[in-house]
Design a protein around this nucleic acid. Structure first.
Lengths: 205, 205
DNA sequence: GCCATTACAATGCGATCGCACTGTAATACG
DNA sequence: CGTATTACAGTGCGATCGCATTGTAATGGC
């Protein structure tokens, strides 16, 4: 009956505007008017797709989390056939990637983290990996150890947990500019070296 | 000449109000009026001690960072005579302490982290340990390894770096309620076990 | 005592906020 | 065709913001 538009495209555009604004000036600088300006639409349109500011920020966060997960899955797909150790490294590297889009997502997540302190509905941000991811990672660690002739130690799940916590922390450092992506990767690789017991590891400038 | 008051006491009171407000509702809910109310003083007094909102938040952040450092130093002083390994554990545990004050500081730091994304003057928050702390920690690791008959491996500084990154990440998880302090400590201890336990991959286990 | 100076208290102001509300162009369906 | 419905655009409102400004009580040095 009415005009038919692509809602998904509209929301995506608005969320992109939120990301850009939050990265530039923190979530406190995200206002209905500025989002509208940034997206090149009217304030009315923003209100049409989101009932409140909260809802808009929350959707932006949901999509950011989803995008980060997608980048991890993408790393898995890309490095899938290269063996468990390389795959493990590739997954973790996704959090400290120098890729511009990846940096934006991390920065936005960090910007929203401040709200998560008091707003439980924002609680997904910077959260430890979910069960599925941890199990998958633990499996990689086990496989990598067996591949090197070692034996599983029965605590691979905690090891995986540590890996993701470390990677998250390094990702935050990269997002805040405290470390270069290369430096972060090198630290991450050092940890994996120790974790798997192999002495081999090269630094990338 | 004029009425003489304790400036330090005044500022401390205002900063405490900022901490409380930010933890309750994020930094966006920190306003001059609410700080004044929370501290039980007038808005005029807040303006008298801080020229702008930014300056107030920044001082609150500086004092929070200082307080966290103090809690680490306190851990060092308390556990100083118990040997390098116990000391190492005690230091790192300071970031995941169940202590109410410690949790408040971590939560506030996290709340401010959102601003640090775009405001370089807030950049001290969640930063990696400084050179002094890293050197000190690296020394602890070296000493602990020697105490166990192991040999230093020449990369203790990176190991120390990893320890603090991990502890920070776990501290964030605790602050956000994703982990209990006990669970975080247990993860941290697991990492230290591995770190000090064995360096040889052939007979590891 | 006098007074310059400090330490506030209180109010005012322009800007901006989220959101409600109103108006209007477009279109699939009968 | 008409029309109900969608998809906006634009505006208005009350609240709130940071900060400037003004007023005043207190006090140590002369």
């Amino acid at each position: 009956m009415p005009k038919i538009v692509d809602h998904e495209e509209r929301r995506k555009r608005l969320v992109e505007a939120v990301w850009a604004l939050a990265v530039r000036g923190g979530t406190e600088k995200v206002t209905l008017r500025k989002v509208a300006d940034e997206a090149g639409v009217s304030m009315g349109q923003v209100q049409h797709y989101y009932p409140s500011m909260q809802a808009l920020i929350r959707d932006a966060l949901d999509r950011a989390v989803q995008a980060v997960n997608a980048s991890i899955e993408n790393a898995v797909r890309t490095a899938g056939a290269t063996g468990p150790e390389a795959l493990l490294r590739a997954c973790l590297h996704a959090l400290v990637s120098p890729d511009e889009e990846s940096m934006r997502l991390m920065r936005f997540s960090l910007a929203v983290a401040g709200r998560a302190v008091s707003d439980p509905t924002m609680a997904r941000v910077l959260a430890p990996g979910d069960d599925e991811l941890l199990s998958f990672t633990a499996g990689l660690i086990t496989a990598a150890r067996q591949e090197q002739g070692g034996e599983p130690r029965g605590e691979e799940r905690t090891d995986a947990d540590i890996c993701w916590s470390l990677a998250t922390s390094l990702g935050v450092d990269v997002a805040l500019g405290y470390r270069s992506p290369d430096a972060a990767r090198s630290v991450l690789d050092h940890h994996i070296d120790r974790l798997l017991g192999s002495g081999r590891h090269e630094t990338a400038g």
